[in-house]
């Protein structure tokens, strides 16, 4: 092996200095993998990106780490059709493609055995990036699939800063459709709804009503339509993320202590700009999630 200059390896290019591009990815978290924690998912992404050959920029300093930024944590046990991660790339997309090519002769897409999100899901961009994203789901566990991706425009804020509300679908046990509708009306009619909840190990008694932006009880179409033996009413909720997020369990508590949440899925995250709602990835880059994606885990 030839000698390699050691200084080159230890002193990575600081991401800020080269204004490294930021790649925003939208992905799902469905099935068994929903029981992993937010931190677990971060670790899963770090490894998947390394395996794929996508070069992530690292922070400098005493304890360097790859620069990945996730949005609002999804509570452990909840599913999602709309998770996001921002990835700081070490190189420009063109350089990136060169690197991948040498790491995976034959192309990364050739290693993929998974659902191909198709060109229409990925924003127009360099050919190399598109190739690469197409195969990325193959490096992620069952239930986590890349749905869309785009390079962020300059000046795009972080996910944490930008996201203002989330849409959820929830399936509830131990309650009839009529009862559930009644509880929903009661909550919407109340000016304050107090529940006990825990944050960082401290119990708080909070009014959650301001965070319930929209709440609907319906048997209509949705993620969990037809998922159980008998059709049952589900909740469709939009919750505000500020001043702090509202967890599905906390909303269910607000509807009544006797209700049991059986499943919850975050279907969308929203950015409200002056009354106009959009998703963190432009609509153009986001296609409806194909049903096949969410049933992969159940089928196998």
């Amino acid at each position: 092996m030839s000698e390699v200059d050691s200084s080159k390896r230890t002193e990575r290019r600081p991401a800020e200095a080269i204004r490294s591009p930021r790649l925003r990815l939208r992905y799902s978290k469905l099935g068994k993998v929903r029981f992993t924690s937010h931190r677990d998912v971060a670790r899963i992404w770090e490894r998947a990106l390394r395996r794929s050959g996508i070069r992530v920029a690292w922070s400098s300093g005493f304890s360097p780490h790859p620069l990945l930024a996730f949005g609002l944590a999804l509570p452990t046990g909840c599913e999602s059709l709309g998770e996001y991660v921002d990835v700081r790339l070490e190189r420009t997309p063109e350089e990136l493609f060169d690197g991948i090519d040498s790491a995976h002769p034959g192309g990364i897409a050739g290693r993929s055995s998974r659902v191909d999100p198709g060109d229409d899901l990925i924003s127009p961009g360099p050919q190399g990036l598109r190739e690469l994203l197409r195969g990325l789901s193959a490096f992620l566990p069952d239930g986590i699939d890349v749905q869309a991706a785009a390079l962020c425009a300059d000046g795009t804020g972080s996910l944490q800063e930008e996201v203002t509300s989330c849409s959820w679908e929830m399936e509830v046990r131990e309650v009839s459709e009529e009862q559930l509708a009644e509880r929903v009306d009661r909550l919407l009619g109340a000016s304050r709804v107090f529940v006990t909840r825990e944050r960082k190990g401290i119990e708080r008694f909070d009014d959650i009503r301001p965070q319930v932006l929209d709440l609907l009880c319906s048997t209509g179409p949705g993620v969990y339509a037809g998922s159980s033996s008998s059709p049952r009413a589900r909740l469709f909720v939009e919750t505000a993320t500020r001043p702090r997020g509202l967890r599905p369990m906390e909303l269910i508590k607000g509807l009544g202590d006797d209700l049991v949440l059986s499943r919850a899925c975050r279907t969308n995250q929203w950015i409200d700009r002056l009354g106009t709602r959009s998703e963190p990835l432009d609509a153009a880059s986001v296609a409806p999630v194909p049903l096949a994606t969410r049933t992969k885990e159940c089928v196998s």
């Binding site: 993998v33 029981f35 992993t36 452990t76 239930g143």
Partner: peptide, 16 residues
């Protein structure tokens, strides 16, 4: 059962 226990990912398998 997994909704009620600590660290439910211990019980799901699915490792690479």
């Amino acid at each position: 059962l997994l909704a009620t226990v600590q660290k439910p990912a211990r019980y799901i398998g699915g490792e690479l």
